[in-house]
Design a protein around this nucleic acid. Sequence first.
DNA 1: TCCAAGCGGAGCGAAACGCTCCGCTACTTG
DNA 2: CAAGTAGCGGAGCGTTTCGCTCCGCTTGGA
Lengths: 213, 213
Amino acid sequence: MTTRKDIAERNDRALLQAARDVLAEDGAHASVAAVAARAGVGIGSLYRRYKTKEELFQRLSVLSLDHWNEAAEQGLTDPDPWTGLAAFVYGCVEFGQGSLGPIAGAVEVTQEMGAKSRRGDELLDELARRAHEAGVLRRDVTAVDISLLIEQLGRSPVVDQLRKQGRDDLLPAAAEARRRLIAIALDGLRPGRDPLPGSPPGEELFTGRWSSR
Amino acid sequence: MTTRKDIAERNDRALLQAARDVLAEDGAHASVAAVAARAGVGIGSLYRRYKTKEELFQRLSVLSLDHWNEAAEQGLTDPDPWTGLAAFVYGCVEFGQGSLGPIAGAVEVTQEMGAKSRRGDELLDELARRAHEAGVLRRDVTAVDISLLIEQLGRSPVVDQLRKQGRDDLLPAAAEARRRLIAIALDGLRPGRDPLPGSPPGEELFTGRWSSR
DNA sequence: TCCAAGCGGAGCGAAACGCTCCGCTACTTG
DNA sequence: CAAGTAGCGGAGCGTTTCGCTCCGCTTGGA
């Protein structure tokens, strides 16, 4: 039996998931109508739950921050500093953390969001510090580097575009290739890698290896 | 002396560069007015050069394809298959090839674009084949993988977002971190890396290394 | 000095937007 | 089982933003 409560809950989930998807595809300009359509829900139903578009996006931001913080806290419980950090990064990337970047500048930052964001920074700092102390993270990789990596890899432009074009046949290959890229990047954060330039890391990271000019 | 021709040429360059930037920031919804404003050019001047928005974006696509093909051809002239391939990839990523992805599905594909696109695929296939034969590219990395890598890394969401927010102070750090990520990913394409899973590469690529579940 | 090539931007109709309102379905209650 | 209503979907409101046209004015060229 599907009670009223069940339907409401299912719709709420569908709306948030759809909002995330549409935002990833259309960026900050994503329209409310597109979110509702993607969720298979009427616009009226959407507006009964969220008084305004801003409120919907803010809720999405808070959920995203919560996911980040929970993943980081769980990572800190891992006795192995590397697997703890790596699981955190992979968890955020898979969650699509980066795809929410566009709204960060579009919605007003509430006090709650600010606090959770600062908390997230602290947790990541701690994850990186642990890894550095254990010698399992490249010295020249900072916490900021890691958060930027999550932002960069935490979106799947190719997958989104293929889905929009209806090329569902290519989707698995694209998702697979993206997973491999993530694995490669994660592995690159570990120390003892062959190129390993001294700090400060910069252009010289490449010199003579693949730059042809 | 600035002749009429000089002004026209400068405007044309500014328009194309602005179109690329705006497209990277706003996606396929990018407005013509935004492009003109970014270029510091009147809308009227834009429309004298391009009869329609579609024509502007098509021209941008063609330029992008040309850049791809020229970079690939130059890479093939390199006697070292690895540096040839790597320079091609880095050149495309730096050019912001990936940021043009959104319009690929927004503009109608002309016959010219189709032909150039096929030619680009052939060139990349050849680059990958050479690298495979020389043993400097992981066996399980295909040409499709490489093009997806370019698409994924060839956009700078963080940099774009920071610029939109006016946080110019953080721009250098973000650009720097992105360069490092590119270097890491490129290096990960080479064979003999420690994780190196056998084909078929899939989830098991990660098992026991950093996945905590 | 005169002319017109070529610029910038005001303003047009059209499209898309955020949001409200209401008729109707179908779950709940007595 | 029948009556009531919670809650759904979507037509449509006013507003904003869009692609694009038109024209007065600047300024290089002869």
